[in-house]
């Protein structure tokens, strides 16, 4: 009996860790939604694109190599370098800023004052464009990502918990790193938004565009800033996920789980995104563990969506979202 208890505990801990991934994607989404009201369908693909770029840069892959070779009959494969993880990460962060600038200049700028649904459609287009671009630039094969994060089960935790409880917990070291990094990320985003002038400008724009303009804030600059931050958050998510299961295109599917997370946490709440991700991560693992066997398993495919549906019915503003009040 206690073994079942400990096993369930271990399952929920692992679920929490998986939830961190959902939280990270949802976090990038909330940032953009809060600032601009744009429902950014491409957030998950941003993570994929960031991870692909990171691997490519780190391993000295030549972008568009396949295309170049096909057109010019060459056979280029790589620059032949191997960058240290941290350098590759910094370079990728710069690429994400560049991407934010391009998105602002070639998409958002032309869509100001459009209906939200138009902007949403634009981000769907962006998602598929980026997915295709990632494919053409870096190739569609599954890639191994190793930026030097610890891998494997933590022996220390296993042996300590075995000594204490007579049950050794299997906790992935990478998951623990992911949790710590996510916590640091949220803390620094909060500090940035509360105490710096750009953070204040971001909050101002999120609150009232007209007033923001009147105090001299350039909305175009803010869009670039917020997409850069979202791109950086996507990069962090891409690193964690890529280190764990390789960089592959199915990431954009996992990223879809961010949607139920948002319905749970509310579209405008950063704590909501985090807690929502954790609840869904843990909930779906526990549900699969206890209820799965009774209903034939594979509950992880739908549990999150059903939970989100329940929330939509009973608490449409999410756990932490502001109460939705129609202004008359």
């Amino acid at each position: 009996m206690p073994d079942t208890f400990f096993y369930a505990l271990e399952v929920s801990l692992n679920g929490l860790m998986a939830g961190v991934m959902y939280s990270l994607v949802a976090l990038g989404f909330v940032l953009i939604f809060k600032a601009s009201g744009i429902f950014n369908y491409a957030q998950g693909v941003l993570a994929l694109f960031a991870a692909l770029t990171l691997v490519g840069l780190q391993n000295g892959q030549v972008p568009f190599a396949h295309l170049i070779n096909a057109v010019f009959g060459t056979s280029i494969h790589g620059f032949g370098w191997q960058l240290p993880g941290i350098i590759a990460i910094l370079l990728t962060a710069l690429v994400m800023v560049g991407l934010a600038i391009l998105i602002e200049r070639y998409i958002l700028k032309h869509l100001v004052n459009q209906e939200p649904i138009i902007l949403f459609m634009a981000t769907i287009g962006l998602a598929y464009f980026l997915e295709g671009l990632g494919d053409v630039m870096w190739g569609a094969d599954i890639k191994k990502l190793d930026v030097g994060l610890p891998q494997g089960i933590s022996d220390a935790i296993e042996s300590t918990t075995y000594e204490w409880f007579g049950y050794g917990f299997f906790i992935d070291r990478l998951d623990m790193v992911a949790a710590v990094v996510a916590a640091l990320l949220v803390a620094s985003l909060t500090l940035f938004s509360q105490y710096t002038k750009y953070g204040r400008a971001l909050r101002a724009v999120a609150d009232d565009h007209q007033a923001a303009l009147s105090v001299g804030i350039s909305l175009r600059f803010i869009w670039v800033l917020v997409w850069s931050i979202a791109g950086f958050v996507a990069l962090v998510a891409g690193i964690m996920w890529g280190s764990k299961s390789g960089v592959q295109f199915s990431l954009s599917l996992i990223a879809l789980k961010a949607l139920p997370v948002l319905m749970l946490g509310g579209f405008t709440s950063i704590p909501g995104a985090i807690v929502g991700g954790l609840i869904i991560g843990m909930g779906e693992k526990l549900f699969e563990f206890f209820i799965g066997p009774l209903v034939g398993g594979a509950t992880e495919n739908w549990f999150a969506y059903v939970l989100a549906l329940l929330f939509l019915v009973f608490r449409p503003q999410g756990l932490f979202g502001e109460k939705i009040i129609e202004r008359v």
Binding site: R203, A204, A206, D207, D208, Q210, A211, S214
Partner: peptide, 9 residues
């Protein structure tokens, strides 16, 4: 502004 434009939150 005539209709007040503050950052309400």
């Amino acid at each position: 502004f005539q209709n007040i434009a503050l950052f309400e939150g």
